[in-house]
Computed example of a mutant assay.
Amino acid sequence: MQSTHRIWPRIAMASGATLAVMGLLTACTAGTPDSGGAAEPAADTTVEDNAATGDTITIGFSGPAADHGWLGAINTAAIAEAEKYSDVELVVAEGTNDANLQISQVETFINDKVDAIVLLPTDGAALTDVAIKAMDAGIPVINVDREFSSTFAARTTVLGDNYGMGVSAGTYICEQLDGEKDAVVAEIAGIDSLPLTQERSKGFADALDDCGLDVSNRVAADFTVQGGEAAASQLLSAAPKIDAIWNHDDDQGVGVLAAIDAAGRDEFFMVGGAGSANVMRSIQADDTVLKATVIYPSTQAADGIALARLIVQEKGMSDLVESSVPRKIQLYAPVVTKENVEVYLPSAFES
């Protein structure tokens, strides 16, 4: 699909940024590597402590090209989060889907001695070595969405829950079909070769199995409007009767709904995925077959910015008894319906 967002050009970094000399992981975080020299965060951190202005830090941020509404929202939210803090200077690298270019961006951050790096890698495995290089230089890396292939490559990882998305979608469909054991459930997946698609499909299948259903018809698209329309047209031609559809991605869902309208089909209900604003408005209006969507948070990089600040300033998460920022945080995948859409619409992204 054509994205409605653009990635910002690389912002020149202010000179004189100080490298925060800190341990990569604290000794009290179990199961993580110890690089030595770790500074302990203050015990009993409060909300007021975390909000208080500290020493100014520089955070480097790099993510893929915003060729998808969700990715555009990732970047927008990260920049907006940094702007909340007078003690954070954010350096934004140009968005790219070229792993080699992104590696060079991280190397520039290392050479410029930023205090932390928030990185949504275009390819987690390909960016692992340079992330380890940053960690070895004493620069904490916050890994977002696509995991590195080594534990040593990140201080903290912020993830969505792809398996949980499938579980949430399947559970909602089970509840709506309420014991209809012969119901026809269809699935329009994303790119089948991606682990995230495989995890979503597995979660969906597991949830359906729990209520005695399975996926009767399944096609895969490519997270684009055009791909969604083509895949949905194929599905509708192959399945003369459907009771429920889960479409993995709301951006490709624009095409899916176009195909449904063109086919004149309305005997089923549909659940979306990711949580776009246009889908939520449709759910709110209740004027299509689309009745729900499952959130895949576009706040992950913004959370990464907030966590990077806490880590460098040796603060913790005030709502946890543990005084250190956790090594891994996985965000929830709630179902958005007409009843709760007003809660989620303000933070939704535009497809």
Score class of each variant (00 low, 15 high):
Ile139Ser: 01
Thr122Asn: 12
Pro140Trp: 09
Asn100Ser: 15
Thr197Val: 14
Leu194Cys: 01
Asp178His: 09
Ile139Cys: 10
Leu208Ser: 01
Asp192Met: 10
Asn162Glu: 11
Val219Gly: 04
Ser201Val: 15
Ile117His: 06
Val91Ala: 01
Thr197Asn: 15
Gln176Phe: 07
Leu101Glu: 12
Ala99Ile: 12
Gly164Trp: 06
Ile103Leu: 12
Arg218Cys: 00
Ile191Asn: 11
Val185Tyr: 00
Ala134Lys: 02
Tyr163Val: 08
Ala99Asp: 10
Lys113Val: 11
Arg155Glu: 12
Ile173Phe: 04
Arg146Ile: 14
Val167Trp: 00
Ile117Met: 10
Leu213Ser: 06
Ser216Asn: 14
Val167Gly: 02
Asp161Ser: 13
Ala134Asp: 00
Lys202Ile: 11
Ala137Phe: 12
Gly95Ser: 07
Met165Gln: 13
Arg146Pro: 02
Glu199Gln: 15
Gln102Trp: 09
Val167Phe: 00
Gly170Asp: 05
Ile139Val: 13
Lys181Pro: 03
Gly160Glu: 11
Thr156Lys: 05
Ala189Pro: 00
Ala153Leu: 07
Ser150Phe: 01
Gln105Asn: 12
Lys133His: 07
Tyr172Pro: 03
Gly124Tyr: 09
Val130Pro: 04
Ala154Val: 10
Asn162Lys: 09
Leu101Ser: 15
Val141Tyr: 06
Lys202Asp: 09
Leu159Ala: 10
Leu159Gln: 12
Ala186Cys: 07
Leu101Phe: 08
Asp98Phe: 03
Gly203Arg: 08
Ala154Cys: 09
Leu127Ala: 14
Val92Glu: 02
Gly160His: 10
Thr156Gln: 07
Tyr163Ala: 07
Asp206Gln: 15
Gln176Pro: 02
Phe109Tyr: 12
Glu147Phe: 12
Ile117Lys: 04
Asp192His: 06
Phe204Trp: 11
Lys202His: 08
Ala154Glu: 07
Leu196Pro: 00
Ile117Pro: 03
Val106Trp: 00
Gly166Met: 00
Glu107Leu: 13
Ser216His: 02
Leu127Lys: 06
Glu199Lys: 13
Ala186His: 03
Pro140Ser: 11
Gly190Asp: 04
Val141Pro: 03
Gly212Ala: 09
Tyr172Leu: 10
Gly95Thr: 02
Ser168Asn: 14
Met135Phe: 04
Ile173Gly: 04
Cys211Glu: 01
Tyr172Asp: 04
Asp182Gly: 11
Ser149Leu: 04
Thr108Val: 15
Asn111Glu: 11
Leu213Met: 07
Asp178Arg: 09
Ser216Trp: 01
Phe148Trp: 04
Gln176Tyr: 05
Ala205Ile: 08
Ile142Pro: 00
Ser149Val: 11
Ala93Thr: 02
Thr96Lys: 13
Ile103Glu: 05
Leu177Ile: 03
Asp87Pro: 04
Asp123Lys: 13
Lys133Glu: 15
Ile191Tyr: 10
Leu159Lys: 14
Thr156Asn: 14
Phe204Ser: 05
Asp210Asn: 15
Ala126Met: 09
Ile173Ala: 07
Asp145Ile: 13
Leu196Ser: 13
Asp214Lys: 15
Gly166Arg: 01
Gly203Tyr: 04
Asp161Arg: 03
Glu147Cys: 10
Thr156Phe: 05
Ile139Arg: 05
Ala153Pro: 02
Asp129Arg: 14
